[in-house]
Amino acid sequence: MTQKIDPLKKMNWFDRIAHPGQFLKWSRYLILPLAILSVILFGVGLWFAFFNSPEDYQMGDTVRIMYIHVPNAWLSQLVYVTMAVSAIGTLVWRHPLADVAMKAAAPLGAAFTTMALFTGALWGRPTWGTYWEWDGRMTATLILLLMYLGIIALWRSFDDQLRAAKLIAIIVLVGTINIPIIKFSVDWWNTLHQPSIVSSEGLSMPASIYTPLLIMMLAFTTLFALLQTNAMRTEILRRKADRQLRKSLNKENG
């Protein structure tokens, strides 16, 4: 393919790095560092979690489930915030990269939320004696999972992904109302669930437990950044391939 005249020169720096083609170029250099970083963080975090942290005086060894439960619960919300911010980008600036980010985040969010619920159930059984309790936070997380799945289903039912992005952005933003409900629901119907652990109360746990938790949260967040970047690259390539497919079909038909 011959190089055309570069139309990007007139753009400002943000437009330049956010242009899908340019994003494809520079984000390549993000993948490896992020991958290495997350491997290191997971290694250190898991070592802390199993070999260098005490058992909790109340929960015993089951406190170790927290090191994977809390990061996933945190990501289940962070991914939705990512989607909501992208949705604003889609609707207000009509930015193609925002569409891509919003689409890439949904399956990741569904996976992290599933893991949060799964580990939560396994943590709840030994500590409270039940896998599932219809308390505010757990219910809200379940609703969040249903919303992710609904959004994924909606993406798949549209043929025209550009139009789909704008419409889905609306439902994502309407759903954002749900995030505060998740946060505050714990005050509403709190039954068995513990109050928010990383909260304004400050460090309500000893540093020996807080350190592995923080490292694991960083590890999972880095993993999300890695997977999100790669999924965005995948989506840009998919659109590129679709465009080429259409072009070649048009050529064949004359």
Binding site: G60, T62, I65, M115, P126
Partner: peptide, 13 residues
């Protein structure tokens, strides 16, 4: 005593 819960949780994740 709850080793199995911990292992299943980590394995699942």
């Amino acid at each position: 005593p709850h080793a199995s819960f911990i292992i299943i949780a980590y394995l699942g994740v």
